[in-house]
Design a protein around this nucleic acid. Structure first.
Lengths: 123, 123
DNA sequence: CGTCTATGTTGACATACATCGAACCAAGCG
DNA sequence: CGCTTGGTTCGATGTATGTCAACATAGACG
């Protein structure tokens, strides 16, 4: 009843991608874990999206205006489509600042993926 | 310095997936690099394939008989189909030993993927 | 040989996806 | 206002993909 200041996670409408799964080599993934991991991999399973993601990730502060990265050989609507896909997968966030729209890499995503591919110590 | 020759890459006649690309965050990928990276990501962009890959990778010696991993909720031909995809992508190799066929994780692949999503050293 | 078990291949089918042009919103500027 | 530039959404279209049932192949074994 009394609102004891539940300062919760601020309403993420999409599913959180970051806290995903153990390393792929640790144990067989469950169906759910596989679903989550596959969603991330699938988002990067297109050359155009890899180029866009890499362009943003390697840009200043991990963010870039669409205008800076839309030279990947496809039409501008297609670029927008792919950016949307990456955003839906939780890999990017976007923000409009005046005239331009900036996309930014979700930092936790890289950490989550790094954990996924983590190698077993014994080599 | 007794490394007279590299011992890791003898004869994969299919496209070598291992020596792929710099980290995604280092610089914008070229079209070719993106194509290579996307092929790897795409191969793991399906939940069934993630489960199969994880089951094999986490198995003894990074290899497993098909019979040990085919319980992923789809029919046997579908399992075979996905294993073939993973093999074509260079993530797995297969070998027949008597009655059973064993699939094995290509170790260099995990290294390549780890390099791909390597985090920038300092922010 | 014949047959059984373990996998792979083929054909068919429904769904998903990448792509484009055109139409549409949003912000700045005259 | 109306124009211009940046970006997204929509509708259409061709291609890729996941899936299964049916058939094929490869060893093991009697």
């Amino acid at each position: 009843m009394s609102n004891t200041q539940v300062q919760v996670l601020p309403l993420l409408e999409d599913e959180p991608v970051a806290p995903c799964c153990p390393p792929l080599t640790e144990r067989p993934f469950t169906a759910e874990e596989a679903e989550t991991a596959a969603r991330m991999f699938k988002a990067l399973g297109d050359p155009v999206r890899v180029r866009l993601f890499s362009a943003i990730a390697s840009h200043e502060r991990g963010e870039a205006c669409v205008c800076d990265i839309s030279d990947v050989g496809v039409s501008q609507p297609t670029v927008s489509h792919h950016l949307k896909k990456l955003k839906e997968a939780g890999l990017l966030t976007s923000e409009r600042r005046g005239t331009w729209v900036y996309y930014r890499v979700e930092p936790s995503v890289l950490a989550a993926m790094g954990k996924l591919i983590a190698l077993p110590a014994a080599a």
